[in-house]
């Protein structure tokens, strides 16, 4: 197990380098740069050139890139082109908000998804199964920003149960977390259902029944544990989609998280900030994936030995 973790950790290093390079190159290809944006419209060429020089943007590309990488090793993500504050400071205030949002969404994905999947699988093709699966299908089909707006309209504007925007209390978090977790929950529900139906047919379930084990134990102890193995992978993959989703949801609900920060920074051509933001987001993604892999490995120890 330890060897496996070390190996997986080692694999993440080239991934992270790759990400920095790709992000850097894309930002170079986008028309306009930070200097232009900062100088504002109608600024003289000279002002822009000066700014460029001050920001180090007139150096060759590879120098700029290696400079940023060198900084990275010291935990220095550079200085924001807009606020002239260290990028890392801004990110550390924004990241926890996004992580919190992602965490609650994942919780909703898992709890809602698995419960629905189990309800479906226990009585396949029944009314409850059909209803759950129709709702799940809708959950997958609705784009999250649209769902967010609809939920906001119903529960915040009309019913006034929840605040429209912001991020202060649990009440603020419910709608965004639900919006973000909904499609994941739908996918997990369908996955749990099909996986359970598959597992229920296995010989060891027949054995458990032949031993006289009571029904709910057969389901929760014998079937569910095996059925969850593929579901874990899906949840892990969902988390990636979730991070992408925060960008949209944070914009819809006006939450000052990392996603929104990145969007704003792109608009401002604040390259150091964008790079830093994406890098941190990718890091989080890589770490979560590693965690999921380990969990999967733990649940399914057979792949270790066979």
């Amino acid at each position: 197990m330890l060897a496996f973790i070390t190996k997986r950790l080692a694999q993440t290093i080239p991934v992270i380098f790759g990400i920095t390079l790709v992000v850097f190159l894309i930002m170079q290809m986008v028309p306009g740069d930070s200097a232009q944006v900062l100088a504002g419209e109608g600024a003289s060429k000279e002002t822009i050139e000066n700014l460029r020089h001050n920001l180090g943007l007139d150096r060759p590309l590879y120098v700029q890139y290696f400079d940023s990488i060198a900084g990275l090793f010291q935990g220095d993500l550079g200085i924001s082109a807009k606020s002239h504050q260290p990028v890392i400071n801004e990110i550390t205030t924004r990241l926890p908000i996004s992580v919190e949002l992602a965490f609650y969404s994942t919780l909703i994905t898992i709890i809602l998804g698995m419960t629905a999947g189990i309800i479906s699988a226990v009585r396949p093709y029944s009314v409850s199964d059909m209803s759950v699966m129709v709702v799940a299908l809708l959950g997958i089909s609705f784009p999250s920003f649209w769902l967010g707006l609809i939920l906001m309209y119903i529960f915040s504007v009309e019913l006034q149960w929840f605040p429209v925007s912001g991020w202060d209390s649990v009440k603020h978090m419910i709608l965004p977390a639900f919006t973000l977790g909904a499609s994941g929950a739908a996918i997990v529900a369908r996955m749990t259902r099909s996986s359970m139906l598959e597992v229920v047919r296995q010989d060891y379930i027949r054995t458990a029944r032949a031993k006289g084990i009571r029904g709910y134990l057969v389901i929760y102890k014998h079937a569910l544990r095996n059925a969850l193995i593929p579901v874990i992978t899906v949840v892990g993959l969902q988390f990636g989609a979730l991070l992408g989703g925060t960008v949209l949801i944070e914009s819809v609900f006006a939450i000052n998280g990392l996603g929104r920060l990145i969007v704003e920074s792109i608009r401002m051509r604040d390259i150091p900030m964008v790079q830093g933001g994406i890098l941190v987001a990718s890091l989080v993604f890589v770490i979560v994936n590693l965690f999921v892999d380990i969990l999967y490995r733990f649940f399914n120890r057979r792949i270790d030995l066979n």
């Binding site: 296995q202 010989d203 060891y204 027949r206 054995t207 458990a208 029944r209 032949a210 031993k211 006289g212 084990i213 102890k221 014998h222 544990r225 095996n226 649940f299 399914n300 057979r302």
Partner: peptide, 20 residues
């Protein structure tokens, strides 16, 4: 079941729960 009448099956590979 499993108390007065017990049963054993053909495939010992698949008849035991792999994660317990």
């Amino acid at each position: 079941r499993g108390n007065q009448i017990s049963m054993i099956f053909q495939e010992p590979m698949t008849s035991l729960n792999p994660v317990i």
